[in-house]
Design a protein around this nucleic acid. Structure first.
Length: 472
RNA sequence: UCCCCGGUAGCUCAAUUGGUAGAGCGAGCGGCUGUUAACCGCUAGGUCGCAGGUUCGAGUCCUGCUCGGGGAGCCA
């Protein structure tokens, strides 16, 4: 059966006969003209709700309409008219209102029309999307996801579905969740007394992936421009507003490319996404700007308009040392930058997103390309790594040019105490037609946080997974 | 995992030096109003996170546990 969305209705000329289906946000009654009710109806198709006016001549006015409460679902048919009241240009004059689903006890309905804390709503994850804030987050999340696919598609990238289950136990990005069908109460043992993974589902140890990068590199060296966009998993016991155990990551990989190409791609992508978001979801973004973080819209506009700044790690350390700031953690060439350092650089010193490139090799992963000696006049060896830092979030993107030289790669693997044999298929890429290539990883939820101003990452994913949190 | 802070009506919070609980919002009913963060009146609603302990007496003090928040580390 055909019906109209609230979004369509709000942009339709008065006079049209329409049918709307949705949920009641509020109901207000008036005694005027013998009695009428104003129902704010939303269906999630846009930020705004529409006002449905139901008069007392409807057969179920007293029996049903006057008993409607926040959260009830209904179908309303009527005429779109110019509103006689202030606050909206059009409204529906209902000729028929059918209640589809009641709220069984309005007194204990978890999300009545009142102010709620984010923490409380997090405990009502199945209902919180009915609120203005979480409806807006859901639409923005979708728009960014669709924008990502469109951005890459327009540039000839192929979306590669890298596996969720991984058998390499050292992708180098943190603790992994084990995937097993073994009976934990009765584990099979080897003669030496260790767990016998030969008898497990895959005949070996398996985990949920922490990154699709190694896999996607293989497709890069055949399709040239590829990316992954899917869930990744970290079993780190991290309890912060910026970490999830299950989060989505975007990882493009480009062949015949260096670190500068990589940085350009990251910048182009972010600018494209921000512009796309402001255009397609102006209504939701206006809400975030007004109620969640004043200034988000201008912040995104500012980024779209100005080129990103690139600084080397060595320069960044110099800036931090000369800042005159008292650091909780020592600033020293060779040490990884702490949150306070990253935030100072992007929020106070440069006041814009920046790429920090060429990090000391000791603090970065084995697959990052070793720079020539003397690069940046650095006091030690560096790799072609890149972190994109943004105000308010800190690190949003981490990437690198990959090491394409087999001998250098093998040496780096050994230096990290890893076994080259474990990476046999990854090494094959360097044995058969190797090419310079580069890529980066973008945490999708951090991107959403940045665009919306939402403070806690658990509020930008429908059902957050975090230590001791997997209720829904 | 570490450091701080908190857990009292459906929600957000009060409760003096320990003396058996209050408000606002929400909800229900009534009044008023083309209403829209409505307004006015009335009503209902609480094993004060859980388990011990101190005390004549514990929401209030002590211990353990648990849940939530902020920050840090790890990172995206």
């Amino acid at each position: 059966m055909a019906w109209n969305t609230v979004k369509q209705a709000l942009s339709t000329e008065p006079g049209a006969q329409i049918t709307l289906k949705g949920w009641v946000r509020t109901r207000r009654d008036s005694k005027a003209g013998g009695g009428l009710s104003f129902i704010q109806l939303h269906d999630g198709t846009c930020f705004d709700a529409i006002q449905v006016v139901a008069k007392n001549d409807l057969p179920n006015y007293e029996s049903e309409i006057q008993r409607l409460t926040t959260g009830a679902s209904l179908v309303a048919t009527g005429t779109l008219v110019e509103s006689k009241g202030k606050g909206q240009s059009v409204e529906m004059q209902a000729s028929e209102v059918t209640v589809v689903g009641w709220v069984e006890d309005p007194d204990t309905y978890p999300v009545p029309q009142k102010r709620h804390t984010m923490e409380y709503l997090r405990e009502q994850a199945h209902l919180r999307v009915r609120t203005n804030t979480f409806g807006a987050v859901a639409r923005v999340r979708h728009t960014l996801a669709a924008g990502i696919h469109r951005f890459f598609d327009e540039r000839g990238f192929n979306w590669i579905h890298t596996p969720i289950i991984s058998t390499s136990d050292a992708e180098g990005a943190g603790q992994m969740f084990r995937v097993s069908t073994l009976d934990l109460e009765n584990l099979p043992r080897t003669p030496e007394g260790r767990v016998d993974y030969d008898q497990d589902f895959f005949g070996r140890e398996a985990f949920l992936t922490v990154s699709g990068q190694l896999n996607v590199e293989t497709y890069c060296e055949a399709l040239s421009r590829v990316y992954t966009f899917g869930p990744t998993f970290r079993a780190e016991n991290s309890n912060t507003s910026r970490h999830l155990a299950e989060f989505w990551m975007i990882e493009p990989e480009i062949a015949f490319a260096d670190l500068a190409d990589n940085a350009r791609l990251a910048e182009d992508m972010l600018k494209y996404l921000f512009a796309d978001l402001l255009e397609r979801r102006a209504d939701d973004m206006a809400f975030f700007d007004q109620h969640i973080e004043p200034g988000v819209v201008d912040r995104l506009k500012g980024i779209i308009e100005s080129p990103f700044k690139t600084v080397t790690y060595t320069e960044a350390i110099d800036i931090l040392e000369k800042s005159g700031k008292k650091w909780e953690f020592r600033v020293q060439w060779g040490s990884d930058m702490q949150s306070e350092h990253e935030r100072y650089l992007t929020e106070e010193h440069f006041k814009q997103p920046i790429h920090v490139i060429n990090y000391p090799k000791a603090i970065k992963a084995f697959y990052m390309r070793l720079n020539d000696a003397g690069t940046d006049n650095a006091p030690g060896e560096t790799v072609a790594a890149m972190d994109t830092l943004v105000p308010g979030i800190g690190e949003m993107i981490g990437g690198s040019q990959r090491e394409e030289r087999l001998d250098v790669l093998d040496q780096r693997i050994r230096e990290m105490g890893l076994d080259p044999q474990e990476y046999w298929w990854y090494r094959d890429l360097r044995r058969y037609g190797t090419v310079p290539h580069a890529g980066f990883g973008l945490g999708f939820e951090r991107l959403i946080q940045f665009c919306t101003g939402m403070k806690n990452i658990r509020d930008v994913i429908p059902f957050p997974r975090a230590p001791r949190q997997a209720e829904f």
